[in-house]
Amino acid sequence: MIGKIATGEIEDEREAASSAAAQLGALGGKKRAANMTAERRIEIAKKAAAARWKA
């Protein structure tokens, strides 16, 4: 199968599925952020930054 994808005989369908999922995830995140207050978004961002720099 890898050889067929490399030679162009068939298309790799996994790329299309993963990009569609990524697009839906991005839309969900934007919708979630739109429904939050600014204070809540700041609280989440601070928690994420603390976790990121902890390691």
Results as ranks from 00 to 15, higher is better:
5 I>N: 00
27 L>H: 02
13 E>H: 07
6 A>R: 09
36 M>D: 03
9 E>Q: 13
21 A>S: 05
41 R>T: 08
15 E>F: 09
19 S>H: 05
4 K>P: 00
7 T>P: 00
44 I>G: 02
27 L>M: 12
37 T>E: 04
12 D>K: 05
8 G>Q: 10
7 T>Y: 13
33 A>L: 15
53 W>N: 13
40 R>C: 00
3 G>R: 11
2 I>K: 06
4 K>Y: 03
10 I>T: 04
45 A>K: 10
24 L>K: 03
47 K>L: 14
21 A>W: 11
48 A>Y: 14
12 D>E: 01
30 K>H: 03
36 M>H: 10
1 M>G: 01
14 R>H: 12
18 S>P: 00
30 K>R: 02
31 K>Y: 13
18 S>K: 11
34 A>K: 09
33 A>Q: 12
1 M>Y: 03
21 A>F: 04
40 R>F: 06
14 R>P: 00
19 S>R: 04
6 A>H: 00
36 M>V: 01
55 A>S: 10
19 S>E: 01
20 A>C: 06
17 A>F: 10
16 A>S: 15
3 G>N: 09
29 G>D: 14
16 A>M: 11
29 G>R: 07
10 I>N: 01
33 A>P: 08
30 K>A: 09
31 K>W: 13
18 S>E: 04
44 I>F: 02
31 K>D: 15
9 E>N: 07
12 D>M: 10
31 K>C: 04
15 E>Q: 10
